[in-house]
Design a protein around this nucleic acid. Sequence first.
DNA 1: GTCTATATTGAGATAGAC
DNA 2: GTCTATCTCAATATAGAC
Lengths: 212, 212
Amino acid sequence: MTERREEILSLAADMFAERGFGSTTVREIADGAGILSGSLYHHFDSKESMIEEILSTFLDEFAAKAQAVVEEGGDPPEVLQKLVTLAFAAVAEDATAVAVMQNEVGFLLQFPRFAFLRKRADEAEHLWVGVLESGVKSGAFRRDLEPRLAYRFIRDAIWITVRWYRPGGRRTIDEIRDSYLAMLLDGITADRRRGGPAARARPSPPRRRRRG
Amino acid sequence: MTERREEILSLAADMFAERGFGSTTVREIADGAGILSGSLYHHFDSKESMIEEILSTFLDEFAAKAQAVVEEGGDPPEVLQKLVTLAFAAVAEDATAVAVMQNEVGFLLQFPRFAFLRKRADEAEHLWVGVLESGVKSGAFRRDLEPRLAYRFIRDAIWITVRWYRPGGRRTIDEIRDSYLAMLLDGITADRRRGGPAARARPSPPRRRRRG
DNA sequence: GTCTATATTGAGATAGAC
DNA sequence: GTCTATCTCAATATAGAC
């Protein structure tokens, strides 16, 4: 609601992301906001309610965007690339929320209050696995691909980049995404077809630009 | 040294892995061991020294095994597959240590005492990146592969499986590893060469067995 | 090697004045 | 919306008896 509230919540998210939820004290949050710890409780019920709001806000938005991408349609590789792009964009733009989610989800899932985390995770799995299954059926993806297993590898590889991606670092998020997409779609093995006739039809093939 | 000590340490590792280091109390560990909290301090200096021993023991062993694999030699794809196999084996066999490492490394690195975690991580990066670079030079891996970026994706995708891999679950660790290696080496895109002449020479190509 | 007993610290949260 | 003051609880760790 109020601007002050958002400000404090954003500050808390930064601290949760950096030190961990359990190791961040309400006094530290209050210090950062320039008030005393007791005053925090004018804005929030509890420390838990802060992290709940941080995560639910992020997940609501992300779920809506992902749903929209799938509803837009397109062939499976295209939709998959859009989803991957969406996730990497979240790593860059909502880094603190993603970091908090990655670091605390295991702990938070112990409490009924955070059951929505599992619900969102299940929804996402359903969405992505659906795209992968369509791709297998359409012949775009390998016949022997196992969508559920592939999804977990894709999901984890993307979200966990939040641990090392740094804005302003050596690689932009777009470069990281393209590098990942190249590995995901074509693997790391040298392609002996290169230089031959265009043997493959893929929409907007992601290619790493050369370094330097 | 003593058996009792190992027993308690193993119990503590289980608890750290499940609830998180910060949320596990020395009283809970003591309860689990059937003694009172004060008695723990006969075996250990502090709670921190417990997690330090859990992680350093695991990392020492893993570093030695990885070093041995590389010294064995072989062409880069072969060595890479051995390293991947080693890491997945650790996920299965030392699940608690891997889980604790994944979940707590960010927090622990704040303290000088745990600087060895960064040292081990740097060593590992050097080792794996070396293998990837060799493979690019030898022509086994794509020319445009970026070894450091690729390493991070590989590392994270493997270690983080500890969050969902369950012994006795639907997939054995070997199946998960093979599925991952297939994605890593060849990507998820359908291979139109299939059924044509053997266009590719790769040692022991990992293929997912069919489901069912 | 464990227990009894406790020191010490710091956490989240509350009530009411301003 | 913040402060003052404080409650309450639980945490790590210690000292010395057994």
